[in-house]
Each structure stands twice: as C-alpha cells, then as structure tokens.
Design a binder for these strands. Structure first.
Lengths: 232, 232
DNA sequence: CGCTGCCTTGATCCCGATCAATTCCCGTGG
DNA sequence: CCACGGGAATTGATCGGGATCAAGGCAGCG
C-alpha cells in the first residue's frame, strides 16, 4: 500500500477518519467508498504545498477533510485560472482520463483523504452505486463550471465579487461571519480579475455597508439582498 | 411512446438511424444505447429553434446526427454565454439533476437523436457499462469546461480566437477548409467577446496571412503553427 | 436584381489592468 | 507585553484592450 501513496506527504495515516472537521454522517463520497469497499489514506499538506500537478498520472481521488484546496491551470507565461476552491467535505481530482488536467495545492494547512482511482474503477465495474456516485460528483463539478463560465465570460467585476461572496457565504459561513482561507490573488485568479480590482471592490462594498471587514480575511455579509441584486 | 417526445419537433421518426451524416461505426454513445437496450427517436429542428430551455425538466439526452447546436446561459439582462458548440456526433443535455441548466438551440437545420433519460437511468442501475459511459461523457464535458474557463478568465482576444479556430479546425475541417455554422455573434458569446472584436480579429489574422476567408463563414487555416503560437 | 440580415470597419469611450506607493496586519522574538 | 519585520492588502494615478456607438458594405436568397 505504501508504494502507491503520493510522494512526500507531510503526514500520513491509514484507515482512520479525523471526524472532527467533517460532519459525522456519511456523505455521498463516503457512501461511494463504503459501496466500493475501500477506505483510502489520510494525508496532510502544508500551506501552498502541491497535492498533484497538471499532467501527472491521476492515481487518486481526494476529499478535503479540513482546510482548503485550490485547483488551477496555468498558461505558459504564468497567467493562472483557478477553477474551484475545495473546502471541507468537497471531492476533487476526479478528472477522468489518465492524467490530472489541473494542479491542486493546499491553500492553508489541510488534511485530505486520498482514494485509489484504480480501486474505485474496479468497484465501479461491479457496484453500480459507485459508478453512479462518481458520475453525480462529476456532474456537480460540471454544473459549477457552467455557472463559472457565465461569470468569467459575461459578468462585471462587481457582479463577480458578489457571486463569489454569496458562494463562500453559502459554503463556509456558519454564524454570518466567514473567514476566507484564500488571498486576494487567489480570489482574483478565480474570478478572472486582478487582485487590485478585487480589493477595490471589497472596499467599495464595505463603504456601501453591504459588507463588514475585520482584517482582510474576515468578512460579514450585512446585506445579502443587495448582493443578490448585484449578482445579476 | 409519443407522449414522452419533446414538444413540437419539426419532424420525428423512430428507431431508424440516418447514418449518412455520422460515421457508421458505433461510437461511445451508441455503445451506451446498445448496452442500455434503448434506441431513442430522431428529431429535426430548424435554424434557431429551441431544443430545450434552461429550467425545463431534463427528460432527454441528445446526440447531434447532423447540423450544429449551441448550449448557453443567459443573464436577466440578456447577456449570453455559450458554453459549447455541439457538432455531428456530439452528445449534449446530460446535465445530472432534474432540470436542464442550459438552453439548447439548433444553429442550423439539424437532426438529433433523443434518448429518454429515465430509461438510461434504469439501464445504468443494472448495466455498468451504461453508467460508466455516461460518466465518461460527462467528464469530457467537464474537461472542455475547464479549458474554456482558462480561456474566458485569462486569455486575450487574439488568443481566444486562435483557440477557437484550432478547435473548429480539429472538429470540422476535413479538407483544410471549414465552413462555420455559427455567426460572429455566436462566436463572440462563446469566447466572451463582442462580435466586433471577433470580426476585427478575423480580419487581422487574414491580413497576416494566417487565415483565408471566402465569405464570412468559409475559413481556411494557412498557418496552424502561428495559431498554435498565439494560443498561448 | 434588390432587399435584408450579417459582417466589416471606423471613432470614441470606459472598465479594469497596470504601475507605484503606502499602510496594515500578523506572526515572531525579545 | 510590546517592538519589529515582511508579506499581504489597500489606495492612487495612469494606461490600454476591448466595448460601445455608428456607418457602410457585401453576400446570400427570394
């Protein structure tokens, strides 16, 4: 088993789920794993550590247990497009095909669960729920990508930021206050903007009272209705 | 059976494949159909006719037999983002979930084959090849979406047009001359540009000798190497 | 042959990018 | 606890690519 682990994980434990950071009930991915009869390995990555690189053999499918992960593509000159942020509970790395089409990096110190793709593939051939579950997860990613293409192709800077804030609010705000794991540059590369434009738009929304900032990463949405209106 | 057909098709025949326009050998989608034991219905749509609308119940999965189809999303004020062009042999409409997330329209008079999603879903539960095939098709769409997000978020106008030309060349150029089914506006809404910018970029590429235009829709790539360089 | 919709081309504008300082946190060590 | 260093964020000034506004041109089709 050890031989098939991704290279140089910061830490590595087997067969034990660190349940504290993910809701205890079985989600769709866990159900797939149970159906497939595989467990996977827990791995830890430090901030900015690469989990896998574009073009590498796609041997694992991952689930975020704690922390946050970005997946992105680069142009030869370094321009970067982040296609998604993956938070606790999210699955990433399920590109079909032999190679990863994106690079994945931990945004902050993160724990992930890595599941061997080959094992899942075998299970999918006999256990329909596994195949169906993997399809559904992929379709969810496609849905997000479709929405994001509309944002990148047609929305204004303010609309992009409003969409981003509502998405993050939905995904990680428990109390109405959210603490963003990602930098302004990450947000910019996700929204197809520059970090300056993101920063300016945040400031503008704050001065309009739509937003509360306590430190750059701590955001409180004060007027969701207004943001929904800006979202277009 | 008739009751489950999409509303008001321009024409409708059953159980017969108009094989002239699609390669005769069984492709991946046909293999799925054979495994699932379903055939589907042939339908014809006129230029600009809607095949399905965003938000409608997603009852069918389609394959283009001849012609071309665009799938897109709209913002409330009419801004449009085309997420993909579907040409002969392509499958579209396989959003998982109950509703279509995009609108599909024929770009030119087109024939499509419609397959009942419910039947496929049932087949997928017993026949693993069906489930696996649907997953793979969805993953292909996701791959395209990932590439397109990079284009929409980070590429310049010239790079976008170069990418588009190479994509169309790959997909529909048999002889080195291709005849585009879509208008400048369609191309613009696909690339996240205005039709004027697309037109200007075409003209510029022609004057550079990279491109040959004989009528707006007939394009010959004279220097693929140069386009590959521009593609970034 | 003419009409109508699509396309091209031109002139100008403006949103977001770029260039350029500060300023603000936040983590670290004293 | 506070002082400090340095990366991250904010803010300002200016630029420019692509959008917008506005005519023509052309081709495909009746």
């Amino acid at each position: 088993m050890l031989a098939e682990m991704p290279a140089t994980p910061a830490a590595c434990t087997f067969g034990r789920i660190s349940a504290a950071t993910v809701t205890p009930h079985l989600d769709r991915f866990d159900t797939i794993l149970v159906s497939a009869g595989v467990v996977g390995a827990s791995l830890s990555y430090k901030k900015d550590e690469e989990i896998y690189g574009e073009g590498e053999p796609a041997n694992y499918i991952y689930k975020v247990m704690s922390g946050a992960v970005r997946t992105y593509k680069l142009l030869p000159d370094g321009r970067r497009q982040i296609d998604a942020f993956h938070l606790a509970g999210d699955v990433f790395g399920l590109d079909s095909g032999d190679e990863y089409r994106l690079t994945a990096e931990a945004i902050v110190d993160s724990q992930v669960r890595a599941v061997n793709r080959h094992h899942l593939g075998i299970a999918a051939e006999t256990e329909v729920r596994v195949a169906h579950g993997l399809w559904t997860l992929t379709a969810d990613h496609l849905r997000h990508a479709e929405d994001h293409m509309l944002l990148l192709g047609r929305k204004t800077a303010t609309e992009r930021v409003a969409t981003f804030l509502l998405e993050m609010d939905r995904r990680l705000a428990v109390t109405g206050l959210m603490s963003l794991p990602m930098s302004r540059r990450d947000i910019a590369d996700y929204l197809g903007l520059t970090l300056e434009t993101v920063s300016r738009t945040f400031s503008q929304l704050q001065s309009q009272g739509v937003l509360g900032l306590s430190g750059a990463r701590r955001v409180a949405l004060r007027d969701r209705q207004c943001l929904l209106g800006m979202d277009a």
